[in-house]
Design a protein around this nucleic acid. Sequence first.
DNA 1: TTGTAAGCGTTATCAA
DNA 2: TTGATAACGCTTACAA
Lengths: 336, 336
Amino acid sequence: MVTRDDVAKHAGVSVAVVSYVINNKSVVKEETRQKVLRSIEELGYNPNLAARSLKTKETHQYGVLFNNLGNPFETGISLGLEAKAREYGRSLIFQTYLGEEEEQLKTIYMGRTDGLILLGQSLQESTIRHFEKLGVPLLSITAPAAAHPSVRCIDIDWYGAMHDLLKHLKENGHTRIGFMGTESKEHHHQVRHSEFCKAISALGLQYDPDGLLQADGRLESAQARMLERLKSPEPLEFSAIVCANDLMAIGVLSACKDAGIRVPEDLSVAGCENILMSSHTSPALTTVHYPRRLSGFMAIDQMMKLKEGQDQPGTSSTILEHNLIIRESTGARSPE
Amino acid sequence: MVTRDDVAKHAGVSVAVVSYVINNKSVVKEETRQKVLRSIEELGYNPNLAARSLKTKETHQYGVLFNNLGNPFETGISLGLEAKAREYGRSLIFQTYLGEEEEQLKTIYMGRTDGLILLGQSLQESTIRHFEKLGVPLLSITAPAAAHPSVRCIDIDWYGAMHDLLKHLKENGHTRIGFMGTESKEHHHQVRHSEFCKAISALGLQYDPDGLLQADGRLESAQARMLERLKSPEPLEFSAIVCANDLMAIGVLSACKDAGIRVPEDLSVAGCENILMSSHTSPALTTVHYPRRLSGFMAIDQMMKLKEGQDQPGTSSTILEHNLIIRESTGARSPE
DNA sequence: TTGTAAGCGTTATCAA
DNA sequence: TTGATAACGCTTACAA
């Protein structure tokens, strides 16, 4: 490996000068600078980042915690994170979050990250304090079920989104509306569910708690759960169903197809997130658009600002624009 | 930050002993060990990984180079990579590969990675040599268009896969078969295309070079390209089309729907990779299954073995099992 | 404008 | 079985 010492020797200067050149300290004489630059080029020198961050306490890496890399919602966000991080010369360490291994985060990221980006996870109080003490900021894209003051959030206004969606369904004659959520109490889908409930009552609609179906956020489990429900002899409690994400909504669509239920003639189905695939199902899915790429941009931007101490107290929560996308999977019911 | 010095002081031992305990050197007296362990616990100590890798020259991190994080094929592989890496206590640095910024890889990964996992990219000779010199092994999941002896590969047998698929189409009466690939000469889809061509002639089928449609691997561009083709007055050169990946095949499906072409009655469509979504389109997509998760497992396993010097010369290329999945999008043509 | 040297938190060698 | 101490490659006072 070529080290800074090699460069110094080759260029006939001291190691400090090499550092000055690399870090663009303007003190260096232009002639010397060129000499050093030439040596760097000739030797193919690259600074060792581990050594650098040991000294500077800056790693130029951010940790990103996934729930499910297989969900295009999360990869869509990462696309934004990654592009913006690249702009700033930052790298991302991706990790799937597993509740039972939360303790390990402390080990994995020690001396390896300038900040942690969550995708809606509710970390334990002790973990949050640990990173706080280390000066590693936490930021969540889409708010955790259990909000914590020292975790800043980027999200859309779920109440507004649910209100828009439910208003659309109401206008199509639906009064009884179901919900498919995610079982875990700590999952960020809980926020979507609770705002759904608020919007339901604000609009004077009915919500039968029996009309709550629980899956785990994945397509397959949603499909299985819905199929099971459709096969039971009892009639559905609802004429329309809102799913906490598109993946589950697509699973519901498939279950309806399997069971011979027509969408939207027999049942209206809506999702959340507007992943690419939701416009390529048949029927195409009505959904709430979540600005994924933008949320990733904002997250990195905020991290960079936090670093520069521009920690404005008002910015602990950022609300992004949402959009209702009406497609074919919702509409008026047609009685055979 | 709590350092090893703090622990040593707290436990009343030297710093060396703390290291011994952490790294499980068996020399330490059990009583001392317990004392140190208790101090570590009490102080909430975690070893600084930057310092450690500076000393040991091992980073316990692997770089992963994506083409498109939005492609479920790539995230499916990552799911495998991530799970296996976790088992071994390794972290992954994800990066989107951009040809024009290849030079930067040398900087980004300096002192930060024990190995680089490619997803079919063809790196420049000089880049490959750079990492070779540093002792950073390169491994590609799905073979690059330009194979290089020092990059080991994990892939399926694309000739076999294409042969299976084309045989199925031939049995359904198709003789003229088109292909949708990816434009760039360096893209790993080129391998799929060339093996397609070989299988075509082995089976005595026709392949009209005009029947080659070029997109960029994404759904949207495939849809646009196919729609454009369908709108031109000339009749199609083929009665069936194979797409280099499922995402593009789904785009083709959407284009057909837009243009009023029935699948498979008017045109058979097949993909590659068998992403989750391909079983939820209508018609469901015929495709070649690629064992994504497994390929990720193998990649990490190989990396770990390379490290231990178990660099068997025979293992530079690993072939995984593939499967033809026949669904609804292919079949016999029905003349109106 | 450049050089010397201390120190970042580890591991590992060598003595004790 | 333990303790000093020299690296690892870098940044950054401070001195020259």
